[in-house]
Nucleic acid binder design. Sequence first.
DNA 1: CTGCAATGTAACTGATAAAGTTACATTGAG
DNA 2: CTCAATGTAACTTTATCAGTTACATTGCAG
Lengths: 147, 147
Amino acid sequence: MSANTRFTVALHIVTWMAQASQQFDLMTSEQIARSVNTNPVFIRRILGLLHKAKLVNVQHGTNAGWTLARPAAQISLLDVYQAIEQEPLFELHHTLPNQVCPIGRGIQSALTHFYRDAEMALKQQLARSTVADVLEETLAASSQRME
Amino acid sequence: MSANTRFTVALHIVTWMAQASQQFDLMTSEQIARSVNTNPVFIRRILGLLHKAKLVNVQHGTNAGWTLARPAAQISLLDVYQAIEQEPLFELHHTLPNQVCPIGRGIQSALTHFYRDAEMALKQQLARSTVADVLEETLAASSQRME
DNA sequence: CTGCAATGTAACTGATAAAGTTACATTGAG
DNA sequence: CTCAATGTAACTTTATCAGTTACATTGCAG
């Protein structure tokens, strides 16, 4: 649907941080960018969103870098989703429908309602898993592909 | 999330058709475009997708136009969604993650699994409502805004 | 208080996608 | 055969995504 990979990259980031925190104190955007295979600025833009949502801590100055703000088991996929995606899942019309037409006049209000329910169902499912779950599955898949 | 309004326009179309079928035999893309307030080609592109999914019938030649293929109460929002959206809800990375990194190697397989569950929850919710429901709410909202 | 390694942002650049527009071949009942 | 509408292709405009360069800012180490 969207050509937008920010949610995926955000999950990659926090999963990587959950794993790397066992080895390092602080992680830099440069290190993370190497795992995601992209540029540090893109990473920092997303880390900025995660920071605004208080999912990560940042430290400036010498020995700067990032840490997870709380254990991976206490960060749900919904937390990450809401930190990253501010737009609604489904867009309404770009141009206002014909307000003279009974359908055109009422459709947006109706769709808003159905879209809200659909988005809610999505979010409830996202709330059921945590970054710790993703890390676990990631490592399982990773070691399987080593063989 | 997506800047894509096709699902909204598709629902507008079928809702309009459900209503208009009480007055007309056949509806043209020109008529629908006037309600959506857009151009007929965009409408026909979406009608083409709905047709491929067998949700609407098309007639060519003189007295050409469109009809719903079955009653609005038998067309779910999921039917429309699947007719329109072929892309997955969440995109994976555009560039392959670093395969040397354990996270980079396993993250896509893991996310595919979590994304599948989330998309499934969304679809189950969409399956719960029909175009007839949307029409009902649309007309209710429409008449309320007349007052 | 200075050096410096990293963050925080802005600005610019393709690349890609959405939707508007024009144009025209195709369809098939009358 | 005619004609009104479909079916598509091609082009344009606009917007968004993400890569890139650049540079001011931060704040600990020395």
